[in-house]
Amino acid sequence: MRAAVLHTHGEPPTQAEHPDPVAGAGRSIVRVTAAPIVPLDLLCASGTSYFGAPALPYVPGVQGVGVVEESATVAPGTRVFFATSAGMAPGDGSLAERAAVPDGDLVALEPGADDAAVAAIGLSGVAGWMTLTLRARLQAGERVLVLGGGGAVGQVAIGAARVLGAGRVVAVVRSDASRARAVDAGAHEVVALSTDVDELTARLGGPYDVVIDPVFGVAATAASRVLAEGGRLVNLGGSSGDEAVFSSAVLRSKSASVLGYTNNALTAEQRQDALTAVLQHAAAGAIRVAHETVTLANVASAWERQAAGKTSGRLVLTLRGDR
């Protein structure tokens, strides 16, 4: 089969012929139609992640969309979203014509958004939804601040906050392109990021009942200062750094909470329910993630663009059998 194969840690994968996956006990074969290139793919492929360096060669790709070809538990022809542990555990991932997927990581899809749109949302949709519902316990009318509002998780969190009844949703972004994506996702207001924490704090205004934070660093420090009484800051990433400074006096005076979140802590049922809810709203146009499609032949250049942050949205590899 054709696949994006990684031969050297830290280098882009390239299109190559690769052995077809084999179904086994508890594993189904999925013909892949669309698979996103996400930051976790690059981290794992770098060989420097805390998961350890994956054995080479391997096919990256931690999520995708496709059609079941062979399975003991799911009817062949079923359209599914799926997750893989490629790069985190031995085995190949989604950036290929076919993938072997644990049955518990298959989510049957209802008619609605096309495969590329579903792939673009994917696990970012689960994170954006569950940070608001499971961790922040968002209540109707509450004010929400979304850091990294132009990213995939940020776009989902903006749309999800709106459909969950937030009174006001403000996004923080670092570029004009990100601003446009945040506005399109439904933000009431967009604030430009500043590396000066005092300046950013002043720009944010507030107060906010909930902060969704996939970036950490200076933005998280500023956001913690504008939390409302009983406010909750939920962190799910550190794209701007692994450290932030929080004032004990500020947090205690507001009885505020700083909470961590990871999709890895979810059960398969929780992940399925969250993705199903997000995709229902996506089908209605209320949640969206800006994306562009690329072919397998162009996977190396797409990988480099993702690494450099030179994209107009999530990059989704499409596989339709064309060579």
Rank of each mutant, 00 (worst) to 15 (best):
D103Q: 07
R135W: 06
L95H: 15
G150E: 01
Q155C: 00
A117M: 00
T133S: 14
Q139R: 15
A108G: 10
P90V: 01
A96P: 11
L134E: 14
A99E: 02
A108C: 11
S85Q: 14
A89G: 02
A120D: 08
V126K: 07
E97K: 05
V126T: 13
P111T: 11
A127E: 04
L138E: 04
A113T: 13
V101D: 07
L106R: 11
A119M: 12
A140S: 15
A140H: 13
G149M: 12
Q139T: 12
V153H: 09
A116Q: 08
G128T: 06
A96D: 08
A127C: 07
G125I: 01
T133A: 13
V126D: 09
L95T: 05
L123N: 15
V118F: 06
E142T: 08
S85C: 11
D114V: 02
V118C: 06
M130C: 12
L138V: 03
G87Y: 04
R143I: 05
A86P: 02
V107L: 15
L106T: 10
A108P: 14
R137D: 14
A136D: 08
D105P: 08
G91S: 00
R135C: 01
E110R: 14
G93F: 01
L106P: 12
D92L: 07
D92S: 07
A86D: 02
S124Y: 10
G125W: 07
L109S: 00
G128Q: 08
V118T: 13
A89H: 10
G112Q: 04
G125F: 04
G122M: 06
M88L: 09
L132S: 03
A116G: 04
Q155A: 03
P90K: 03
P90C: 04
M88A: 13
E110F: 09
G149A: 12
M130G: 07
S94N: 02
G93D: 01
G125P: 03
G149Q: 13
E110P: 10
G122L: 05
M88D: 02
W129E: 03
V126Q: 08
P111H: 10
G125H: 07
A119E: 13
P90G: 04
V146S: 05
G141W: 02
A117L: 03
Q139E: 15
G91L: 00
L147H: 13
A140D: 12
D103S: 04
A120G: 01
G93H: 00
T133L: 11
L109E: 01
A108I: 10
